[in-house]
Computed example of a mutant assay.
Amino acid sequence: MTATAPAAVTTRGLTKRYGSHTALHGIDLDIARGSVFGVIGPNGAGKTTTMRLLLDIIRPSGGEVRVLGEDPRTGGAALRRRIGYLPGELHLASRVRGRELLAHYAEISGRVRPGVVDALAGRLGLDLGRPVRSLSKGNKQKLGLIQAFMHEPELLVLDEPTSGLDPLVQQEFLAMLREAKEHGQTVFLSSHVLSEVQQAADEVAILRAGHIVELATVARLRETAVRRVRVVVGEPDAAALRATLDRLPGVTGVRDVADRVGAAAFEAQLDAHVDTFVKAIGLHEVIDLTIQEPDLEQSVLGFYNEAEVVR
């Protein structure tokens, strides 16, 4: 019987305190190998603190952590060579050219296959012959991405990786994430932009003030997110439809909206009860029906607000 490989990242009760301030409150994570795991939250939520603890840049105040099966505090350089890291605050003020800086990083991170650096630079649209200090924020970010990806590490830890990138480069980055997953690499990605995470991640942790307020797959978040709906019926059926909407589970905020002569329209918000909703309004003579994509941004804001109430 083949033994199951340990998770790429495991934490139990991971805590970090700075004096009287607690930055992380007992975080529990299990990140499967070969998956893309996203952490989202506002500034100060604890995303960067979590990543620095995984990399032994800072030490925990309590709890346990394992990265690629090892304790980061004892894994040393050998463990770090198995990881690609892009910090959220990237400082590259070097006088050398991009290619020379990457060669320096390669001496630290380990073997880089021939052609990989040039291929990544081509995909991201970066001129490696320019001095690093002359690069724009976006081009420095591209250089940071190349150094994280170039040695094809088992684990990629990426803190706000698309900061400063234009939309076309962001899409190329997402393609790089998909390819990394296909190759069996694990990605731990942080962002405060939900749309970025939902396009790439298998699972998402929503972090607020050092607490995980929700841990779910992107599919599950989509199922529970609020949708906006609009139903149009003939005026003779308006009262009956309004009565139906008012009693349906998961339907809130029903309101009449103006429509063409001879028809009535209602707008409302709908949660996960889509099947019940469609079957119920199907008993009426519906002229038009619109169900918008789930509003994940509002759903996540709801988790933030609930966390504030709890504390």
Rank of each mutant, 00 (worst) to 15 (best):
A5P: 11
A7R: 09
T10S: 11
T11Y: 06
R12Y: 05
L14C: 05
G19M: 05
T22R: 01
A23R: 05
L24Y: 04
I27D: 02
D30G: 01
I31P: 13
R33Q: 09
N43Q: 10
G46T: 01
G46V: 03
T50V: 02
R59D: 01
G63I: 07
E70C: 02
R73G: 03
A77I: 15
A78N: 07
R82K: 14
I83M: 15
E89I: 09
L90S: 04
H91A: 03
S94N: 03
S94W: 02
S94I: 00
R95W: 07
R95K: 08
V96Q: 09
V96L: 12
R97D: 08
L102S: 11
L102P: 06
H104G: 10
E107Y: 00
E107H: 08
S109N: 13
G110V: 11
G115M: 05
V117S: 08
A119F: 02
L120A: 01
R123T: 05
L126R: 04
R130Q: 15
S134T: 14
S134C: 01
L135N: 06
N139K: 04
Q147G: 04
Q147I: 06
L165K: 09
D166N: 03
E172V: 10
M176R: 02
L177H: 03
L177T: 12
L177M: 15
R178H: 12
E179R: 15
A180R: 12
K181Q: 10
H183N: 13
F188G: 07
S191K: 06
H192P: 10
H192M: 13
H192D: 12
L194Y: 08
L194Q: 05
Q199G: 04
E203F: 10
A205I: 14
A205C: 11
R208V: 13
E214S: 02
V218N: 10
R220P: 01
R220A: 15
L221I: 12
E223I: 02
E223V: 05
A225E: 11
V231T: 14
V231R: 15
V232F: 04
G234M: 08
P236S: 13
L241H: 07
T244V: 10
L245R: 11
L245K: 11
D246W: 00
D246V: 00
D246H: 05
P249I: 04
T252D: 02
G253D: 14
D256G: 10
V257D: 06
V257C: 06
A258M: 03
D259C: 03
R260T: 12
V261I: 09
A263F: 00
A263K: 00
A264M: 03
L270D: 07
D271T: 10
D271V: 03
V274I: 11
V274T: 10
V274W: 04
D275A: 12
T276R: 14
T276S: 13
T276M: 05
I281H: 08
G282S: 15
L283V: 11
L283G: 15
D288C: 06
L289I: 08
I291R: 11
I291L: 14
P294Y: 07
V300G: 05
E308S: 04
V309G: 00
